[in-house]
């Protein structure tokens, strides 16, 4: 590489590091700079959905499967945390990974074994069925989950004996979870496992012919992905302090899917951009939940028709294309 290219590379990398650094600093100082509790709660919400969208993206974007039933995994995580904390006093910090593991195990057993041989639509429908079955179990197994009454009074998490009760504290926790999750996901994707997953996504037959044990890797993918959904569920339970089956309807799964698609399925930043865009949009146009879903439905259709790769697939060249088109129009 010529010296010039080397310097240019350094500058580009330096620039992106600068941007990243700036972003990190903003995120760290954010709650100290902002007065409004409302905005902090919105950002916390966005961060929760970043976890959920990344979780679904692992399955849909890297696992060669298509799942719509994410509400179920989220639900298992939340209820595990709620039940273990209200009844047995388990600590938030232990429950975070535990809820994840629980969600992973449940999906492994109920979804993994029966359904993994299915493709496309059929697998998607089964995930839907799974999500509904979880919700029905939660509603009907009253001795375990208090059924439709939900579980109130989830305690505050404690940090070295001090209760965590302010929004800004929850903010730092979820921020930490997001950063840790993205770090882990990135490392896994850039390894033999990630490559095996992408090969399965691209062409299962060829992947298998090259030695990838497709069934096993799909199971791993499912477990890894649903783990994070369970973690998100645990955080949500402690943050909201009350959960019920109403928060885990199919609409949740649809919303998360919309965020994944709009952000860009199969990309790393897609599940970050999607929630940011869609949730900010819906906060600006605060309305009934149904309006939110209309927007999500239309957004999915628009993305599929215009740019199936989502926001993440818009590169610099596309922006230049658009600029050119606009300038031509003005000339006329």
């Amino acid at each position: 590489m010529s010296k010039f290219k080397y310097l240019k590379n350094l500058l580009i990398r330096g620039k992106s590091h600068l941007i990243l650094g700036f972003l990190l600093v903003t995120l760290l100082l954010f709650p100290l700079l902002v007065e409004s509790q409302f905005i902090i709660r919105v950002v916390i919400n966005i961060l929760i959905y970043i976890v959920l969208a990344s979780s679904m993206n692992i399955i849909n974007g890297y696992g060669g499967m298509f799942s719509i039933g994410h509400a179920g995994f989220y639900c298992v995580g939340a209820y595990t945390a709620a039940i273990m904390s209200t009844r047995f006093g388990w600590s938030f910090w232990i429950l975070l990974p535990l809820s994840g593991v629980m969600a992973g195990i449940v999906s492994f057993l109920l979804l993994g074994f029966p359904a993994l041989r299915l493709r496309g639509l059929y697998f998607a429908m089964v995930t839907l069925g799974f999500s509904e079955v979880i919700r029905l179990i939660v509603l009907n197994w009253i001795t375990l989950t208090r059924g439709p009454m939900g579980i109130p009074g989830i305690p505050f998490p404690t940090f070295f004996g001090n209760p965590i009760m302010y929004n800004w504290q929850f903010y730092y926790i979820i921020l930490g979870i997001v950063v840790l999750m993205l770090f882990i996901i990135r490392r896994v994707l850039n390894s033999r496992i990630g490559r095996a997953w992408i090969s399965i996504r691209e062409d299962e037959t060829a992947a298998s012919a090259m030695g990838v044990e497709v069934f096993r890797y799909k199971l791993m993918n499912l477990f890894f992905a649903t783990f994070w959904a369970g973690v998100a569920g645990c955080f949500y339970a402690f943050y909201a302090r009350y959960i019920s089956a109403d928060s885990f309807t199919l609409d949740e799964g649809f919303s998360i899917l919309a965020m994944v698609i709009v952000g860009g399925q199969g990309s790393f930043i897609g599940p970050i951009l999607g929630p940011i865009l869609l949730l900010t949009l819906t906060e600006i146009f605060r309305g009934i939940a149904q309006y939110r879903l209309i927007v999500f439905g239309v957004a999915i259709l628009i993305v599929m028709h215009l740019r199936p790769g989502g926001i993440a697939s818009i590169k610099l060249s596309n922006i230049q294309e658009i600029k050119q088109k606009l300038s031509v129009r003005q000339d006329k």
Binding site: S191, R192, R195, A196, I198, E202, D203, T205, M210, M220
Partner: peptide, 25 residues
Amino acid sequence: IKLFKYMNVLGNVKIGFHIQTKTNF
């Protein structure tokens, strides 16, 4: 031809080494 279309050329070849490597989570 069953190539992995959205991978680069080197990535496609790397899959061939799946059976020679053993990185886990």
